[in-house]
Amino acid sequence: MTGEGRGGLVSTDFEAAARRNRRNTVILIAVMIAIGAVLAYLLGATVESAEGDPRFNPAASGLGLAFALIMIAISLIWTLITMKAGDRIVLALAGAREVDAAAAPQLHNVVEEMAIAAGVPKPRVAIMETEALNAFATGMSRDHVAVAVTRGLLNSLSREELQAVIGHEMGHVLNLDVRYGTAVGVFVGLIVLLSDGILRLGRFGRMGRARGNDKGNGLQIVLVILLIVAAIIAPLAAKLVQMAISRQREYLADATSARLTRNPLALISALEKLGNSTVPYDRANRAIQHLFIVNPFRDFSATAGALMATHPALADRIARLRDLG
């Protein structure tokens, strides 16, 4: 555990991980835009079919195409906003407040130390005012990143343990997990919002009711059913993407923390403290739960190994870290 070792402590291949994350982010955004466009087309077609025009063709609905184009335009603008301010959106969703060096000198120092060790610019620093123990990093590039920790974490971790946790977050920055995670969080939010809106329209609006008894009636019912099914499935699919975020990432970030600090024992004791804390952080938005170092909602000791969990069980992570030492 000397300061200057020559070989890496463990193999932590960030460049391969970063390439995967760049590619996955592009695929993710394309798929999310496509889902949004399909939803918008179905909505437009349903509305048009309600007009009862006998020449209506569900495969080439003018209103549907118009809606789809508008949705694509909105998604593209949304993508640009995400590129520019994804980290700030996520900080707001998490209820984290940015702090300057005078307000949290030690946290700023530790973040700067880990940035130096990783060879990246110093991220911005934010604090979540809660007794829960948690932390996350967010941002669309290595140069524009924010790291957020909870007040409880600052109060109950030693300097070395804090350093290990920040090292873990710096691992996500190096691997560009932050980019993919931020994009997932921001787009899952958009799809959920859109589907919610459609379902609400269907419940309260006139969309679901047939006007008159035209020939288009049967077709219209089919379209409404399609739309509702799509509006239910789309957010589920988006959630699945969020859950499928490989748990491998957490192991890799843990290993990177050990490589940066040369001190896996500090991370082990930090994770043990995180695991022993029973305070949940329910102010966090569910769209970004995958970004946290430990899941802010779920009880992470018991069922976290299950298929749907966004995080591996802490016991597994600690066991792997012990293998490094």
Partner: peptide, 26 residues
């Protein structure tokens, strides 16, 4: 206390800067 924290942090930064330098050299 704040001076000690600054100095501790600076010692760490020196060590981490050297570590990163050696990683880059490798």
């Amino acid at each position: 206390r704040s001076l000690m924290e600054e100095l501790t942090s600076t010692e760490n930064k020196i060590a981490f800067a050297r570590q990163h330098y050696n990683d880059s050299v490798m």
